[in-house]
Design a protein around this nucleic acid. Structure first.
Lengths: 346, 346
DNA sequence: CTGTTAGCGCCTTCAG
DNA sequence: CTGAAGGCGCTAACAG
C-alpha cells in the first residue's frame, strides 16, 4: 500500500516532523538529512497528502469558480487557464460551478455547496445581484470577480470596460463614414447576461453621442435554437440595410460573416464588421475586433486571491484591463453605392 | 468563525455522529432528527468538510487530468467539461496537469506530483510511452485514457478511430472524383502528437488503397510561429494544385479556408475541404468535417473512473466511439477545369 | 537542527 | 436508531 509519513521517517531514521519539514520547509532541515529523507520518500513513492495538509491547516486548498455558461466558451476557458496556471503551483485546485438555469441558480445559492469547501470564490462574467454577493460574503472567504458588472461587495475584481470598448468601436465606424450601424447580440433564457448588456449600452450611447445622423439598430438573437440563423435573417431583412455591424462577440461575428458572404454580400464592401474578444480565429481570418486577454485576467485574479487568502487584503483590489480595437480586414470606409450602370465599370 | 460539526451537534442536541450521518447516510437517521440537524446546519452555514472526509476515507477526492496542450483547445475543454459534469456531482475535483514541453514531461514523471493526491489519472490525447504508463500504474490508482494510441497498461480508455475516420473522408473525396488530395497537419516542437499521426497515416493508407490514380501530398505546418501561414503558402505553391484537402483539425481548416478565398480560390470550386472534429463554427459555416463528441467521451471516461475507484473493475474498459463524416458545403464533386474561352460562358 | 505530542474534522466501528 | 471514541496523515508548538 501507499507509504505513510511514518514509514519514511522510520526508514530515514528521523521523526515524522523532519519528514514533514523536508517537504514543506526545507530550510529548517539540514541539507544532508533532507536529502536522505527525499531519497527514501522517492523510493517509497511518498508524497505529502494534500487532504491532511488541508485538514490541518483549516483550508480546503480549493477555489470555487462560478460561471454562467459552459467552460468551453472562449472567455471562460481562458480565464480558467490563467487561474489554474497560478493556483495549481500553490497547491490549489479549482472547482467549477456552472450555473446556467434559474433552478441551478436557486439551488446553488440555497445550498452554497462551496461553504467551508473553498478558500475563495471567483465569480466569472456573472450577473450576480447584491443579495447573492452577501450570501457569498457570508462564507467568510475572499470573493473575487472577473468581468462583473458591480464591484460592490467584492474583495477584488478584474474587468475590462465593456461599455467604453464598444464605444470605441462605434466611434471608429463613424469616423470612417458609417451612419447606419447595427449591434447584434444574443439573448439567453438564463438569469445572466455576461457583459452583453454593457456592450449594448455602450453601443447605443456611442451612437447617440455621434449625433442624429447615425441610425442605430439592435438585433436580438435568441441563443436557441440558433442565434446565427436569427442574426442572418434579421440582417438581410433590414431595409435600409446597415453599412456596419458590431457584434457582442467574435463567436457571433465569425459565422454571420461567413453566411453573409454566402448570400452574396461582400465584407467589408457591403458591411463593415467588428467583433469582440479577438478570439481564436480572429487574426487568421482578418476580423476587426476588440482585443482582450482573459487568460491574463485569470492570472491576475489568481494573484489577488492568493494575496487575500494570505493577508486578507490586496494591494490593488480593483483593476480594469485595457482593450484594444484591432483594425483588420473586415472594416473599411463607407463607400456610397454606385449606380447600377456603373456596377462593373472597373 | 465557521461552525464545526460539534456546534451543530450541540445545538441539535445530538451527537456528532448523528450529524455526520445526517449528511452522508440519511437513511440511518430518523426523519425527524435528520430534519432538525439539517435545519440547524443550514442556519449555521455548516457543510461537511471535504478535506476531513478525504483524509478519513483515505481518498483525495481529486482526479488528475493530463493534457499535452492548452485546456482551451476544443478537444481538451470539451473532455474536461464532460468529466467535470460527472465527477463534480460525486464530490471529485479535477487537477489539470498540462505537459507541453520536454522539460515539463520529464519533471512530471520524475516528481509524479499526483502521487497519493489523486484517486485516478486520466490521460487525455497524449502520446504516452509504456515506461510512463508503468510509472503511472505504480501509483496504484486507476489509469484511464481518452484518445490514447495504445491502450496497453490502461485500466480503461475511450477513443475514436482516428485512422478509420480519416480513411472515410478520403474515400468520400475519391468517390466524388478527386484524385489529387492533400493532408494538412501541424508539427509541434513538443513530445506529443495527439491523434495527428494516426490521422495522417489513415490518410496515406486510404490514398494508397484508392489506387495509383490518386496522388496524395502531406503538408507539414510548424505550429510556430503560425501554422496557417505555412499551410496557405505551401498550398498555393503546389503545382499541380490538389483538388481536395483533408485537415488534421477544424481549427486548421477554418482559417485556411478563409485565406484561400481571399486569394481568389473558391471552395468547393477550386478545393473541396474536409475538417476534423465538427467543432464550434463548423456547422454554421458549412464545413464538411468528421464529427466526434469529446464531451460525451469525458462523461463516459468519468463513469469508468468512478466504477474503477469503486469496484476496481469496469464493465466495458475499452470503448471506441463512432465518428461521422458530416457532408456540408465545402465539398463537391470534382469538376475538370473548363478552358479559358469558356470561362465566363455561363 | 530535530523529536514529541496534541489536535485539525470527520467517519466508523462498537455498544447501547 | 443513536452515542462514544479512536484514528486518518499531517503540522505546529514546544522542548531539547
Amino acid at each position: 500500500m501507499k507509504a505513510s509519513i511514518q514509514d519514511v521517517a522510520k526508514r530515514a531514521g528521523v521523526s515524522v516532523s523532519t519528514v514533514s519539514r523536508s517537504f514543506t520547509r526545507p530550510e529548517l532541515v539540514s541539507e544532508r538529512t533532507r536529502q536522505k529523507v527525499m531519497d527514501i520518500a522517492e523510493s517509497l513513492d511518498f508524497q505529502i497528502s494534500r487532504s491532511a495538509t488541508a485538514l490541518k491547516s483549516g483550508q480546503s486548498l480549493r477555489i470555487a469558480m462560478l460561471i454562467s455558461g459552459p467552460v468551453t466558451e472562449w472567455f471562460n476557458s481562458h480565464v480558467f487557464m490563467g487561474l489554474n496556471a497560478v493556483l495549481q503551483q500553490q497547491g490549489y485546485d479549482i472547482s467549477i460551478y456552472t450555473i446556467n438555469t434559474f433552478e441551478a441558480r436557486k439551488a446553488f445559492f440555497n445550498d452554497l455547496p462551496v461553504r467551508r469547501n473553498a478558500d475563495a470564490v471567483l465569480v466569472c462574467s456573472f450577473n450576480i445581484n447584491s443579495a447573492e454577493v452577501s450570501r457569498l460574503r457570508h462564507m467568510n472567504v475572499p470573493v473575487v470577480g472577473v468581468n462583473i458588472s458591480d464591484p460592490d461587495g467584492f474583495d477584488a475584481a478584474v474587468t475590462i470596460d465593456d461599455r467604453d470598448s464598444m464605444k470605441a468601436a462605434v466611434r471608429h465606424l463613424v469616423s470612417i463614414g458609417h451612419r447606419r450601424i447595427a449591434f447584434i447580440r444574443t439573448t439567453h433564457g438564463t438569469p445572466f447576461t455576461y457583459s452583453a448588456d454593457e456592450r449594448m449600452e455602450g453601443f447605443i450611447q456611442a451612437c447617440r453621442e455621434a449625433g442624429p445622423s447615425v441610425i442605430s439598430t439592435v438585433l436580438h438573437c435568441p441563443i436557441n435554437p440558433n442565434p446565427i440563423n436569427s442574426a442572418v435573417s434579421q440582417l438581410l431583412a433590414l431595409n435600409p440595410a446597415p453599412t456596419a455591424l458590431c457584434f457582442q462577440t467574435d463567436d457571433l461575428a465569425v459565422p454571420v460573416l461567413y453566411r453573409l458572404r454566402r448570400y452574396g454580400r461582400t465584407i467589408p464592401g457591403d458591411f463593415s464588421i467588428i467583433g469582440f474578444d479577438d478570439s481564436t480565429y480572429a487574426s487568421d481570418i482578418g476580423l476587426t475586433t476588440i482585443h482582450q486577454d482573459p487568460e491574463e485576467m485569470g492570472r491576475v485574479a489568481a494573484s489577488k486571491i492568493l494575496e487575500l487568502i494570505d493577508t486578507e487584503k490586496t494591494a490593488k483590489p480593483f483593476e480594469t484591463f485595457p482593450t484594444q480595437l484591432m483594425l483588420r480586414e473586415t472594416t473599411a470606409p463607407y463607400a456610397p453605392p454606385v449606380s447600377a450602370d456603373a456596377d462593373t465599370a472597373q
